[in-house]
Design a protein around this nucleic acid. Structure first.
Length: 442
RNA sequence: GGGGUGGUAGCUCAACUGGUUAGAGCAUUCGCCUGUCACGCGAAAGGUUGAGGGUUCGAGUCCCUUCCAUCCCGCCA
């Protein structure tokens, strides 16, 4: 007998079906009558076992056990439906059931009986149980659609997908700290970014590339928006005139992807998470760092350091953009060279400023991008000025010696984007499995 | 890495100024109950109060050390 998804039950009243899932709740009404609420990936249904012969009448079903039920789909008695808020107008009259895998006493409470959600640390220890909650599952349905839409955007706009090595002979120089790994008798590094290789793709004539891959940051950061290993979305494109071309691509990409998410899950997100997800308008607001600082000064946020935004400033700017410009996103451009890596291109008329940008979303940074310096001599000069070990990065500099198109690109953190899209309280909630400086399991 | 807050049963929490045997709900096990839906009723089991040291007649409670968690800052996406 074929398994039936719970969402399809309303069309199957009167027929006998086989359903499978987790036992979310169990109510022993008597020795002869037991209710079990079954949950699968599409929904929930109440299953009624009355006086079953040759079994324990579902009294042996512990919470979260995996069970298989064969039963009759019935409209629920009218009285029962009125009283019920949680479960639908249909139920299953159990004919037979099988416990496929019995659950022990749970280490955290995951059904409606839980008065408080378990602490984050406990939930992360038992992430697979935490994720059984339908609202947590939704995060990853949304992630899937977001990523699918971005791939659709990229592939229909002539980007090629690449996969670059994560074990590197030299750090990828994003400015972030790097993990060392033993590589036979040498030291290798985990990629902080596919930066060098997506630029190599430009040298290879790919013109436009994107990559979805893991990035590693050896930073002892303990905040709700940091993690030591996360998925990065990277894009790089050739023959641009400036960083504005990169920003134009990114805003189209994000608006397209969010639109797809809203179309598919907007209602469900509103219902389960209480968040009204808006499709952002194009173009996104843009301002230079100097302009951002001026605005912040005007609204009374003191600047802690020149040429960069503190997290307080990022939040304040996010609020300002939301209330004054009615937008969730804002590009901040023209960062000074001190806070940017050597490969960012500088303005022709101001060698102190880079043709770079960060994209802020609801007060946090989700992207860094720039036009890259593609002229070999200039690049070497900037690397030296930054005190780079030229020998160590010569393999990268060589990409620029035999003709390199002008290009630029960006790196985005989807887990941060998701966190803000869905109003999650921490980045660990938007990741399948979370890593921080201390957590290596599960 | 710096700072704040916290750590009590499997989970979520309680325990007044230090005071007898550290409690409750849920979960688990057992008993009762034909319509519950956070079902209800009864019972059992469950604890080195994160760890180590100290003060005291007496420490979950006060002090020191240490570990862990969490939030904020820094770093960054």
């Amino acid at each position: 007998m074929e398994r039936t998804y719970l969402k399809d039950l309303p069309n199957l009243v009167g027929s006998t079906v086989k359903i499978v899932g987790f036992a979310e709740n169990q109510r022993e009404q008597s020795a002869k009558l037991t209710f079990v609420d079954l949950r699968d990936i599409t929904g929930k249904v109440q299953c009624v076992a009355y006086n079953l012969e040759g079994s324990e009448n579902m009294r042996d079903v512990t919470l979260e056990s995996v069970i298989e039920i064969v039963g009759l789909v019935k409209a629920r008695p009218e009285k029962a439906v009125k009283a019920d808020q949680q479960l639908g107008a249909f139920e299953i009259e159990v004919k037979e059931y099988k416990i496929l895998s019995k659950s022990e006493g749970l280490p955290l409470q995951i059904n409606a009986k839980a008065q408080n959600e378990s602490e984050a640390d406990t939930r992360m220890d038992y992430r697979w149980l935490d994720l059984r909650k339908p609202e947590k599952l939704l995060t990853f349905k949304v992630w899937t659609e977001l990523e699918r839409a971005m791939i659709e955007y990229w592939t229909t706009n002539n980007y090629m997908e690449i996969h670059t090595p994560k074990i590197l002979g030299a750090p990828s120089e994003t400015g972030a700290e790097v993990f060392e790994v033993k590589y036979f008798d040498r030291t290798a590094y985990l990629a902080q970014s596919p930066q060098f290789y997506k630029q190599m793709a430009m040298a290879a004539g790919f013109e436009r590339v994107f990559e979805i891959g893991s990035v590693f940051r050896a930073e002892n950061s303990n905040t709700i928006r940091h993690t030591t290993e996360f998925t990065g979305y990277d894009a790089e494109l050739s023959y641009i005139d400036s960083h504005f071309d990169v920003m134009a691509e990114e805003e189209k990409l994000i608006a397209f992807a969010i639109q797809k998410v809203v179309e598919k899950y907007g209602e469900e997100i509103k219902k389960t998470m209480g968040v009204e997800l808006k499709v952002p308008t194009i173009p996104f607001p843009k301002m230079t760092m100097v302009e951002a600082k001026t605005i912040l000064a005007k609204i009374g946020i003191k600047s802690e350091k020149e040429g960069d935004l503190s997290s307080e400033e990022e939040k304040a700017l996010g609020n300002y953009v939301e209330t004054e410009l009615h937008h969730d996103f804002v590009f901040v451009t023209d960062y000074p060279i001190e806070v940017r890596p050597f490969y960012h291109m500088r303005h022709e008329d101001n060698q102190k400023l880079t043709k770079s940008f960060d994209l802020m979303y609801k007060g946090i940074e989700i992207t860094t991008g720039a036009q890259r310096e593609h002229r070999y001599e200039k690049l070497v000069e900037q690397a030296k000025e930054k005190g780079m070990n030229i020998e160590l990065i010569q393999f990268y500099l060589d990409f620029f010696r035999y003709g390199m198109p002008p290009h630029g690109g960006l790196g985005m953190g989807p887990s941060r984007l998701l966190m803000k899209m869905l109003g999650l309280e921490s980045i660990r909630e938007s990741m399948f499995i979370f890593r921080n400086p201390r957590r290596l399991n599960p």
